[in-house]
Amino acid sequence: MIFPGATVRVTNVDDTYYRFEGLVQRVSDGKAAVLFENGNWDKLVTFRLSELEAVK
């Protein structure tokens, strides 16, 4: 189960963010908004829950 605050990895091989890890900001309607941070940039991207896996 994916909840806000969880760290997730993108599993969709066709996505630009494949294998990126980010922090879930919100979850609704089968989608999750994931925040990616890297140095001087932040990006908030929405994914279907089926495209994400929780990082242990």
Rank of each mutant, 00 (worst) to 15 (best):
M1V: 09
M1S: 13
M1L: 13
M1W: 11
P4A: 09
G5L: 03
G5S: 04
A6C: 12
T7L: 13
V8P: 00
V8M: 01
V8S: 00
R9V: 10
V10M: 01
V10Y: 00
V10W: 01
V10F: 01
V10R: 00
N12D: 07
V13I: 12
V13K: 13
D14E: 10
D15T: 11
D15Q: 08
D15E: 05
D15N: 15
D15Y: 04
Y17D: 02
Y18Q: 01
Y18D: 02
Y18T: 02
R19F: 08
R19E: 10
R19H: 11
R19Q: 14
R19L: 14
F20L: 10
E21C: 08
G22A: 03
G22N: 00
L23F: 08
V24F: 01
V24W: 01
V24D: 00
Q25T: 13
Q25K: 10
R26C: 13
R26T: 15
R26M: 14
S28H: 13
S28R: 09
S28Y: 15
S28Q: 12
G30N: 07
G30Q: 06
G30A: 05
G30L: 04
K31S: 09
A32G: 03
A33S: 12
A33L: 15
A33I: 15
A33Y: 15
V34E: 01
V34G: 01
L35F: 09
L35V: 06
F36K: 00
F36V: 04
F36M: 06
F36C: 03
E37F: 13
E37G: 12
G39F: 08
N40Q: 12
N40E: 12
N40R: 11
N40T: 12
W41Y: 10
W41C: 13
L44C: 09
V45H: 06
T46I: 14
T46V: 13
T46C: 12
F47H: 02
F47E: 01
F47S: 01
R48D: 14
R48N: 14
L49V: 09
S50V: 08
S50Y: 08
S50W: 12
S50H: 09
E51M: 05
E51F: 06
L52S: 01
E53Y: 05
E53T: 09
A54G: 06
A54C: 11
V55P: 03
K56N: 12
K56S: 13
K56W: 12
